[in-house]
């Protein structure tokens, strides 16, 4: 049986991600694991995560997940990063006084700023929490069946500024332009929580589960 490995490095709510994947997967077993062998044998790999980046990166390194992520991305199989798992794929983050990340994307994780203001000069709340519109760019397979400007559920205080515009497949405005979905070859990564984004989120996960990693 084909498997989708959800990488468990002790940070965050893996239950939601795995339940949502089980809900949409066809003939695929969803396994929550930190075992490099199980991850290596999986056809699809998901790197989730919530919480502070310093703790996440510390656990990723302590458990050798950094090596596992690099290997699996290099192998060409479909790979999905979610939320802090998305930020962890960037070069570095400003959170916790600066943390080096896995540098799988050319991008930096920035603080929203205090104060963060909207176009009218009104102060915006941080974290950016709730349902916001995602502008799609390009025609990536994970957007299949999802309309442009569909709302997804976000919760984050730091946002990604991508270094390579060609890798940006989704943007959101919250006081500033945030790059919320990046893609490169077999890797796709999103800031929002597809597992918490109702129909649109499940559709995105279904698209990922059915994706062969080619664009």
């Amino acid at each position: 049986m084909k498997t989708i490995a959800v990488i468990d490095y002790g940070m965050g709510n893996l239950h939601s991600v795995s339940k949502a994947l089980e809900h949409v997967a066809n003939d695929q077993q969803v396994i929550v694991t930190s075992d490099p062998e199980v991850i290596r044998n999986a056809e699809h790999v998901v790197l989730p995560g919530v919480g502070a980046i310093r703790d996440c990166m510390a656990e990723i390194r302590r458990l050798g997940v950094d090596k596992v992520v690099r290997e699996n991305i290099a192998s060409g199989k479909p790979f999905l990063g979610i939320c802090v798992g998305y930020q962890a794929l960037m070069q570095d983050s400003e959170e916790n006084d600066g943390v080096d990340c896995l540098a799988q994307f050319d991008g930096h994780v920035r603080f929203f700023g205090d104060p963060l203001l909207d176009e009218q000069g009104e102060k915006l709340k941080v974290p950016h929490m709730g349902w916001n519109k995602v502008r799609q760019s390009g025609n990536h397979p994970i957007w299949q069946g999802i309309e442009d400007d569909t709302r997804f559920y976000f919760v984050h205080s730091y946002y990604v500024e991508a270094g390579n515009p060609a890798q940006v497949i989704g943007e959101t405005t919250y006081g500033k332009t945030c790059h919320v979905a990046l893609a490169h070859d077999n890797v796709v990564a999103v800031q929002f929580h597809p597992e918490k984004s109702h129909h649109a989120g499940l559709q995105l996960l279904k698209n990922f589960a059915g994706w062969n990693g080619q664009v």
Binding site: N13, H15, K19, A20, H23, V155, H193, E195, K196, H198
Partner: peptide
């Protein structure tokens, strides 16, 4: 949490980090 794919907050009787861990693991 197995059937509802929108955010879920659980409150009431949360008194320790163990209580939190338990609810997050359950899918909150």
């Amino acid at each position: 949490a197995s059937e509802v794919f929108i955010p879920l907050t659980v409150g009431g009787g949360i008194r320790s980090c163990d209580d939190i861990r338990r609810m997050l693991n359950a899918g909150a």
